[in-house]
Design a binder for these strands. Structure first.
Length: 429
RNA sequence: GUGGAUAUAGCUUAGUUGGUUAAAGCGCCAGUUUGUGGCACUGGAGACCGUCGGUUCGAAUCCGACUUUCCACCCCA
């Protein structure tokens, strides 16, 4: 088989067999979000480029080299969203949703686009589940958002494969002080640092803290810690977040080196790293300055994003994570044209009654039909041949046990069927 | 963006120093049972060996480019 083209690099199809599993996981996330009072929001896949420049930050890697930016036919510069938060903030402001009272809570499942070099768990089209909360400045909001993410991991059976890392990167005021101290410390030993870290020194000195080079790591051990530079308000906020999480029985590790790649974060930041996979399955934090940056009134806000592709990689490894479900409850196996027509009508009636039913569409023999019924996981089968049509009666067979029970094919078929399957023991199954 | 691997039926793979019709298991279709699935047996369909080009009498096999996937960085979800 020769195709004219393939799925573009870093993208993939979700085929039947896998798509149901994605939906199942999405439903857990959406359910947990709704449990916490979050409502679904959907925003465009592309936005004005300016939005991401202002929100994500012009010096970040995401903006500098990973955005799918192009000019549309009207000469506007637009960009496929590289992350979910900016569009939601824009929509919240544009729609005047803040007039609905605070806090505003939204969740979404979307695709994001980044021009990356693909690897396992790293796609150019990446699927993300995210939540955003606006108008809540209290530490309890941080704790609730973190707890919600933890709860999702628990419900998916992944808590244990991932853990919670927590940090506070302070407000712009205390972070400026910290950067100054950090630069002073690393500049003194600049020549010992690796090449990338020397660049980091200018761009974002906090990144040196989690450099994997042994030399830099050793130097970083003695570096000043952000938590020592937090202003009184930020420090108190962080303490309260930690104590709430502890009270809720959620284990976490404070990681002073935890830095996020997007510029808009303030105060609480967190990630869900996985030692097993070597990357984080999700992360988020507070971004109290972003709403104002985009043109709204100063509004405290926070959220997180979960990497769907990565979560699914982990889920697909787990046995029994997705129970097998049949694609049909009952299969009608007609023999011959007259029977096929009858089967079509009965299946149609079953569908109208809300029963997942299927029948032959390939003019196959009985044996092949029974195999098919087995393959699609049908719980019951009914063979429709000349005898059955003539008598107006057939045998309803329970596949698991092989037992059968007579069933009428007349106008009362639906009633007879429903009675038979809802009281299986009464009819002798 | 840097460095390194990879590519053979739908899937997982074999293919020895280049040599006729590229092999197996699973899956798919059919038969063994004129009308009852799972098991077993038999048969069948299915691959221009990632693409293009080069070396050669001859290339799945050697060389080059491109593409894909994967790994380590960078970065991130």
């Amino acid at each position: 088989m020769e195709l004219i083209t393939k799925a573009p690099k870093g993208t993939r199809d979700l085929l039947p067999g896998e798509s149901e599993k994605w939906t199942a996981v999405e439903n857990v996330m959406a359910d947990e979000a709704e449990l916490n009072g979050f409502a679904e929001i959907r925003t465009p896949v592309f936005e004005h480029t300016e939005l991401f420049l202002r929100s994500v930050g012009e010096t970040t890697d995401v903006v500098e080299k990973q955005m799918y930016t192009f000019e549309d036919k009207g000469g506007r510069s637009v960009t496929l969203r590289p992350e979910g938060t900016a569009g939601v903030v824009r929509a919240m402001l544009e729609g005047g949703l803040f007039n609905g009272g605070y806090p505003q809570k939204y969740y979404y499942k979307t695709t994001c686009y980044r021009y990356e070099k693909p690897q396992a768990g790293r796609m150019r089209e990446l699927h993300q589940f995210g939540v955003e909360m606006f108008g809540a400045a209290e530490p309890a909001a941080d704790a609730q958002v973190v707890a919600m993410a933890v709860s999702i991991f628990e419900r998916l059976g992944l808590w244990g494969d991932v853990s919670l890392s927590l940090n506070s990167i302070g407000c712009p005021a205390c972070r400026a002080e910290y950067h100054k101290a950090l630069r002073a410390y690393f500049s003194a030993r600049r020549d010992e640092l690796c090449e990338t870290c020397r660049e980091r020194l200018d761009r974002n000195p906090m990144r040196i803290l989690d450099c994997k080079s042994p030399v830099c790591g050793e130097i970083a051990k003695g570096a000043p810690k952000i938590t020592d530079y937090l202003c009184a308000d930020c420090a108190a906020h962080f303490e309260k977040v930690k104590s709430l999480l502890t009270a809720a029985g959620i284990p976490f590790a404070v990681d002073p080196g935890l830095v996020r790649g997007l510029d808009y974060y303030t105060r609480t930041v967190f990630e869900f790293p996985s030692a097993k996979y070597g990357y984080a399955l999700g992360g988020g934090g507070r971004y109290d300055g972003l709403v104002e940056e985009i043109g709204g009134k100063p509004t405290p806000a926070l959220g997180f994003g979960l990497g769907f592709d990565r979560i699914m990689l982990a889920m697909l490894e787990k046995k029994d994570a997705f129970p097998e479900e049949g694609r049909a409850e009952v299969y009608l196996a007609p023999l011959g044209e007259a029977a096929a027509e009858k089967a079509f009508l009965l299946v149609n009636a079953l569908h109208r009654a809300g029963v997942a039913a299927d029948t032959d569409l390939c003019a196959r023999g009985l044996k092949a039909q029974m195999k098919y019924a087995d393959k699609i996981g049908a719980k019951y089968t009914v063979v429709l041949g000349e005898d059955e049509l003539a008598k107006g009666k057939a045998q309803l067979k329970e596949m698991k046990t092989g037992k059968t029970k007579p069933i009428s094919l007349g106008d009362d078929f639906i009633d007879a069927y429903l009675t038979a399957v809802t009281s299986a023991e009464d009819i002798g199954f």
